[in-house]
Each structure stands twice: as structure tokens, then as C-alpha cells.
Design a protein around this nucleic acid. Structure first.
Length: 507
RNA sequence: GCGAAUAUGGUGAAGUGGUUAACACGCCAGAUUGUGGCUCUGGUAUGCGUGGGUUCGAUCCCCACUAUUCGCCCCA
């Protein structure tokens, strides 16, 4: 059997639907913030990343997929999004022919040759934004708030925003030297990795996991003490705007980030849900004022953020957030015998073209089996065709929930469906989450004689699993509302059935 | 790059050094004379990761490999 490459995943089924939903939320959020979609190549000249991200960073030195193409060009599968975007910004002269600042977002796969583990794959999908051409501290704060708002819109609650400032080049260099001076006498007491970092990238000693409880690290100088006046003021401004945007954050003086191109503001957003492994950073970013110039463009400030979609969905799962995913089909067209099949084909097509979500029978099953299939697919209405009805220009349509069956004229069908589907819409939305267990958790099914399970496993028992995750509605913070949210925020569809008590920002 | 655990049908999994490897789910069919979901009955499954070794005999014991999962490093 041929299997997928290590560290890659096939996303399909309910998982695929979650991805689609998350992407939809991203697109709608980006529309509101007026970020434009950009798609750049999945591979670039190796130089883009080697120069852009820094030759000493681990990502570049040992984690890229490098290859030589048939024309002997050195290529690299992109390990992150920013460098490619900046290359495109320069190549397409966006600094000249687009409104400044240029605000771009991307959403695509990245590749890093690493040992896979929980929350870390070789092929990962990142959504990210880049705001190029503004050095205003407000842009830093807004970028952070975009990230936070995305997580909130999806219903995540347990997140933590950490920020820090590396300062401008002068501050950063002063700090780097101060740090080296500080660590030099203690070198022998640090872990082997840290000794190497001392030479290559001393800042990274600070977030060493091995030495994290070491007094030497705890007493190390922090970046904020080495910021020059200008950088310090700038950082204060960023914090001021964050407060205006109502972003809860904490300052982590040891946050330095791995990529060389960062200066001034850096930030990370962590998930704090039980069950997350050590890879709990959902998204991160910062300012990179030197990068455009480094890659050969005009000196241009920039700030950005990237978010791993896989980890995001993992966090949603761990917080047991139910996404409003539409799974059920509206109409299932079945036929009693082959003689009605032609008409079934015509009818299915015409219903689909009229905008209904329609399924039919493909494998020649018995009528009984067609009913089962319709149930499996969660069909709301069943159309049962038989010759006798058709001769009278009629058909039978059955509400699959109430089991009421009526015979109606063919001409009346579209009108009838419009009517009943509209009526049922709200009611069905409440139902659809109860019917299928997608929790991936332990099976709480008590009927051991039917279920062969012995303990923990992904629920596959086919019974209606009693999962306990009916609470989270997937909407913005603190909202307990029904579909019609009083505040007018329409980004979400919630299904909790409670009265609206929402606390949206500014409402 | 380093470390640990795991590998049984479409799925979740029992189990044994020796004829036809449980059970449950799923799927298909019948009871139901052209209307299912419950129930009952029957049927279905290229199944012990790959390659060696020990043994009269290995899915089970040993070794290697591969893959998966988790952790370290690093990162989203």
C-alpha cells in the first residue's frame, strides 16, 4: 500500500468541514479588515528564505526542503509565509502601485523537515497577514488584535497573548552584547544547546526549556531594560493601543522569537487548554522593519502574524467547540424501480439547479436501503418516485423528521420545498448537532452489549453517543444568544437556544 | 538529529507457541406481499506491518527494518 509522506495528513470528512469553516471565517474577517488575499508559490529560490529568515535559524539550517530543479536552480519549499510575500511585494513594486500600507493575507501550506509530533507536521497550513509600509505602533496593535479576534470569533476562550519588544537595531545589538557579557562567566553551567546558542543566537538562550528554572536565566538582563528612548516610547504606544482595542496581554520579557528578521514588537498567542502538548503556540508574529530592504527592496517597515490552522483546529477540539457545520442534505430523491430512474435524474438536476442540496441513489439499492442511505446522509425531505404517481404528474414527498408524507403536483414541488425548508431551518439547526457524535472523545455509550468497546477509543459505535459538549455555541465571547444576536454581529451562528446576553465589544 | 511506546478485518478491539483468530460496530440481504430507521435471522471482511532468526510448528519469543503516536530540539 502506498502511504502518505511522514508528517502529512489527509484532511477529509468532518475534519475537512472544520477546515472549510475556519477558512470561511478567516475570509470574512479579512474582508472586514480590508486585507487582500495573496497566493505566492509554494517554492521559491532558496535565497528568499536563507536571506530572509536568517542563515543561523534552525528552520533554515536544518528544516527546509531544498532541491535543485532540472535547470540547476536551487529551490526551497516555503517554510513560512512572510519571506515569500515580501519577495512578491518587492518584485511587483507594490510599494508604488498599491495604496499604502499594503495589507495582505495568505492561507496555505508550508513545509518543514522535522520529526512530527502532536501539533507539529512536516506539511503545515498557515494563515497569516502582513501589513507593509507602516511603522505606526497602532499597526502592531491592530495586527495582534486581528489574531485575537479570529480566535474569539471561532469561540476559543483559553488563549493567552504574550508580547515583548526587541527594540530597534541599536537596542537589539546593545542587548545582545549585554546578554553575552552576562552569560560568558556562566557558560559551563548551561546546557549544551545553550552553549551553542551563545555563539549563534544568544537571545534564544532565554527560552531554553532545559535551563528555564536555572537562576542564571532568571536573573538575566531583559530586553526591555536595553530599549533606547525611542523604542521604549514605541512599545508603550503599542500597549496603549492594545488596551484601546481591549486585548488582554501580558509582557513576557523572555519572548524573543526564532526568526532573525524580527525587531520591535514580537508576540505569541498560546492555547491554554488541558490536553495540548508542548506545541501550544497557536500563532505568533512581530515587526520586521529590516526585511524588505534585506531582500532587496526599498526600506519599508512591516508587521505580521501567522497562525497554524492545524493547531487552531486542535484547540477548538480540545475546548469542545461545536462549529456550525452544515452536514445534512435537504432532499433525497429515491425511486421504487428502474423505470422511474430517468425522471429521478431529471428531477435531481433541476432541484440542484434551483439551489437545493440534493442527493439520490447511485448503487441500485432496494427502496429500503435507499431509506437507510437517506438517514445516513441526514436528509430532511425524501422524494419517493413511482410510476403511478408520475403518470398523474404527482410525487410523494415525506418529511423525514415528522414522517408525514404528502402527495403533491410536480409543478408545486419547488414552491413546496421553499416553504417547508424555510420553516424548518431553525428547528433543524438545533437538531443537527445532537445527531452525530464527532467529539473524538471517550465513548460514553452505556450499552456494552451493542458496543464492542472496552474503554477509550474514538467513538465509532454508531449509537447516538451521549457526548457532553452541547454547551459551546461557537460564537463570540460571552454570547449565550440564539441566532438573532441583538448586537448585530453576524459573523457567527449560534445554536444554544438561550436568550441573547452578548457582550460584544463596544455594544 | 536524539529518546520512548505501539503495529490484529472497512472501524473499535480480544486472544493464543499447534486444526476453521473472539466480540461489537459497519456493510448487504431477508422477515416487511413496492416505505426505512426498533427487533430478529442470515450473509460479508484480500486480518495478525515487512524481512530475517529460534522452533517439529510463530500472529504470539528474539533481531532488524518500516510506519504511526508521544516527548526533546526547534517551531505555527
Amino acid at each position: 500500500m502506498i502511504i502518505k509522506p511522514k508528517g502529512c495528513h489527509d484532511i477529509y470528512g468532518i475534519e475537512g468541514k472544520k477546515w472549510q469553516y475556519v477558512n470561511k471565517v478567516i475570509d470574512s474577517l479579512m474582508e472586514k479588515y480590508n486585507y487582500e488575499f495573496i497566493r505566492t508559490p509554494i517554492f521559491e529560490s532558496s535565497e528568499v528564505f536563507h536571506r530572509g529568515m536568517g542563515n543561523t535559524t534552525d528552520v533554515v539550517t536544518k528544516e527546509t526542503y531544498d532541491f535543485t530543479d532540472r535547470g540547476d536552480r536551487k529551490m526551497t519549499l516555503r517554510p513560512e509565509g512572510t519571506a515569500g510575500i515580501v519577495r512578491s511585494y518587492i518584485e511587483n513594486k507594490m510599494y508604488g502601485n498599491m495604496p499604502n500600507p499594503v495589507k495582505l493575507y495568505y492561507n496555505g501550506t508550508m513545509y518543514r523537515y522535522e520529526r512530527p509530533q502532536s501539533g507539529r507536521d512536516r506539511e503545515l497550513t498557515q494563515f497569516g497577514i502582513e501589513l507593509l509600509g507602516s511603522d505606526d505602533p497602532y499597526s502592531d496593535s491592530e495586527v495582534i488584535s486581528v489574531a485575537v479576534n479570529l480566535y474569539k470569533m471561532l469561540g476559543l476562550r483559553e488563549i493567552k497573548v504574550k508580547i515583548n519588544s526587541l527594540g530597534d537595531n541599536e537596542s537589539r545589538n546593545n542587548y545582545r552584547e549585554a546578554l553575552k557579557d552576562y552569560f560568558r562567566p556562566y557558560l559551563s553551567e548551561l546546557c549544551p544547546d545553550c552553549k551553542e546558542r551563545f555563539e549563534k543566537n544568544p537571545l534564544r538562550i532565554l527560552d531554553c526549556k532545559v535551563d528555564k528554572d536555572n537562576e542564571i536565566l532568571k536573573n538575566a538582563p531583559i530586553t526591555l531594560d536595553y530599549l533606547n528612548e525611542e523604542s521604549k516610547e514605541r512599545f508603550d504606544k503599542v500597549r496603549e493601543y492594545l488596551e484601546a482595542l481591549e486585548v488582554d496581554y501580558e509582557i513576557d520579557p523572555k519572548l524573543v522569537r526564532g526568526l532573525d528578521y524580527y525587531n520591535h514588537t514580537v508576540f505569541e498567542i498560546e492555547a491554554h487548554v488541558e490536553g495540548f502538548g508542548s506545541n501550544n503556540v497557536l500563532g505568533a508574529g512581530g515587526r520586521y522593519n529590516g526585511l524588505v530592504e534585506l531582500l532587496g527592496g526599498p526600506s519599508t517597515p512591516g508587521v505580521g502574524f501567522a497562525c497554524g490552522i492545524g493547531r487552531l483546529i486542535m484547540a477548538l477540539d480540545l475546548e469542545n467547540i461545536k462549529l456550525p457545520i452544515k452536514e445534512d442534505i435537504e432532499v433525497f430523491v429515491m425511486y421504487v424501480s428502474d423505470t422511474e430512474k430517468n425522471y429521478a435524474a431529471t428531477l435531481v438536476q433541476s432541484l440542484r439547479m434551483s439551489g437545493f442540496r440534493v442527493e439520490t441513489e447511485y448503487t441500485g439499492r432496494s427502496l429500503k436501503a435507499q431509506f437507510k442511505q437517506a438517514d445516513r446522509l441526514g436528509a430532511k425531505y425524501l422524494i419517493i418516485l413511482n410510476d403511478e404517481d408520475l403518470r398523474r404528474n404527482e410525487l410523494k414527498i415525506k418529511n423525514n423528521k415528522t414522517k408525514e408524507e404528502v402527495t403533491i403536483g410536480l409543478d408545486y414541488l419547488l414552491y413546496y420545498l421553499d416553504e417547508v425548508l424555510l420553516e424548518d431551518e431553525i428547528e433543524y439547526k438545533e437538531e443537527e448537532y445532537m445527531e452525530r457524535c464527532t467529539c473524538g472523545d471517550e465513548c460514553n455509550c452505556t450499552e456494552e452489549k451493542h458496543c464492542g468497546c472496552m474503554g477509550e477509543h474514538n467513538c465509532n459505535c454508531g449509537e447516538h453517543c451521549e457526548c457532553t459538549h452541547e454547551d459551546n455555541c461557537g460564537c463570540l465571547d460571552g454570547c449565550d444568544c440564539d441566532d438573532d444576536c441583538c448586537c448585530g454581529h453576524n459573523e457567527h451562528e449560534c445554536h444554544c437556544g438561550e436568550d441573547c446576553k452578548c457582550h460584544h465589544e463596544g455594544e
